[in-house]
């Protein structure tokens, strides 16, 4: 697959659009279908496509495994951190109303933004690292 010129060019053209689409799904998730889970998977799919066509080594150079592993943990931290911030501001865990001073609805929007950011980071990190792990394994023969 690595030497097929049509695949290579098509991938080169498609990848940026897939990445942009993932961001659209993430940030438009409040207004239409979408959200962190879907966006994370789509974001990962862009890198999976890149790795399938250009080879795993090149993909690892673009997106080092250490970064992906960090993403996995970072997402859960962002999510739980949102809860901790709301506790520090004097409300219950993951109660977003206090996140913007005196404006519960704005606070809710902020909370949802950070939580979804945590979700996309973890899902993206997990999907890509699972792909790296399975695709990077050499067969018995």
């Amino acid at each position: 697959m690595t030497y097929n010129i049509i695949l290579r060019i098509a991938t080169k053209v498609l990848c940026p659009f897939i990445l942009i689409f993932a961001l659209y799904v993430q940030f438009h998730g409040d207004y239409g279908p979408g959200g962190g889970f879907q966006a994370g998977v789509i974001l990962a799919a862009a890198f999976v496509l890149y790795a399938l066509v250009y080879g795993l080594e090149n993909c690892r150079r673009v997106l080092p495994p250490q970064v992906v592993y960090a993403c996995m943990a970072l997402g859960v931290l962002i999510y739980a951190g949102t809860g901790v911030v709301s506790v520090l501001l004097g409300a219950d865990f993951l109660d977003y109303n206090v996140l913007a001073h005196g404006d519960p609805i704005h606070g809710q929007h902020r909370g949802i933004f950070w939580v979804e950011l945590g979700v996309i980071t973890t899902v993206f990190g997990t999907m890509v690292s699972i792909f790296y792990a399975i695709a990077g394994r050499k067969g018995l023969n």
Partner: peptide, 9 residues
């Protein structure tokens, strides 16, 4: 929605 992503994991 969440179950699907957990199922792939």
């Amino acid at each position: 929605l969440t179950a699907i992503v957990v199922s792939i994991a």
